[in-house]
């Protein structure tokens, strides 16, 4: 699938935003991702959608290597080759939700939060300059980890569900905090459609431990089912 770049922008220290026009008829739900072809790389690069409006997809990424350098250097009008939407997405309900995004993990939950009626949206970052411009949450936590604030956030907002994305140490703690959770996970992926079994995690479903692919069965999982490595 071809996309036409609308803009790329540095939105925080080391973090970029890419916005591109998708072909007509394209649609994506919060939690789903697109996989973008980067020249000379063996694998595509998967990115959760941070927004989708008027046919334009927005993704956020940290500048890490060749692939993300290529994306950061794209100019308006450039063509990109992407596959998507891939994966399952978050459940959208009327439940009172605590929405947590840590670092670049803010992307899918920012998109999700737009669809939620009752939510408190928290972003956790290492430093002030890492808070992405135009993606500000209701509450910003700087330094330490979200784990230092989890108890307070739960007491203050009494969520029926927590939606989260971020490093696995954060997600693991969230799944163990006693509140029902839905988490968006990440791993190196090859095929993007569940056939190569490269991005497998373990789930415990009704006492039976089984494999699930992040790319196809996820990337969003019920936190209580994830078996941590």
């Amino acid at each position: 699938m071809k996309g036409k770049v609308k803009k790329t922008e540095k939105v925080a220290n080391g973090m970029f935003m890419l916005q591109f026009e998708a072909p007509q008829g394209f649609n994506v739900r919060p939690g789903q991702f697109v996989s973008i072809l980067c020249p000379d790389l063996t694998l595509r690069r998967p990115f959760s959608c941070a927004d989708f409006e008027d046919g334009a997809v927005t993704v956020l990424f940290k500048l890490k290597g060749k692939g993300t350098s290529f994306l950061a250097g794209l100019q308006p009008g450039d063509e990109i080759d992407f596959v998507g939407p891939l994966g399952n997405g978050f459940d959208i309900s009327d439940k009172h939700a605590l929405v947590i995004g840590a670092g670049v993990g803010i992307a899918p939950v920012y998109f999700l939060n737009k669809f939620l009626k009752q939510s408190h949206f928290v972003g956790a970052f290492k430093s002030e300059d890492e808070v992405p411009k135009d993606f500000e949450p209701d509450e910003v936590i700087i330094g330490g980890t979200i784990l230092d604030h989890l108890e307070r956030l739960i007491a203050e907002h009494k969520p029926e569900i927590i939606h989260a994305c971020g490093p696995s140490v954060v997600l693991r703690a969230i799944t163990r905090c006693g509140v029902t959770s839905q988490i968006a996970m990440e791993k190196v992926m090859a095929c993007g459609i569940g056939v190569c079994k490269g991005c497998v995690i373990k789930l415990n479903r009704g006492g039976v431990v089984q494999n699930a692919t992040i790319c196809h069965d996820g990337p969003v999982f019920d936190g209580g089912e994830v078996v941590w490595e």
Binding site: D40, T42, V188, G198, N211
Partner: peptide, 20 residues
């Protein structure tokens, strides 16, 4: 078969290593 535990894919220069 459930396959291997741990990381299964590693991207290399012009290729990839798998241990599914």
């Amino acid at each position: 078969r459930p396959g291997n535990e741990g990381a299964r894919i590693f991207e290399t220069c012009c290729g990839m290593i798998n241990r599914i």
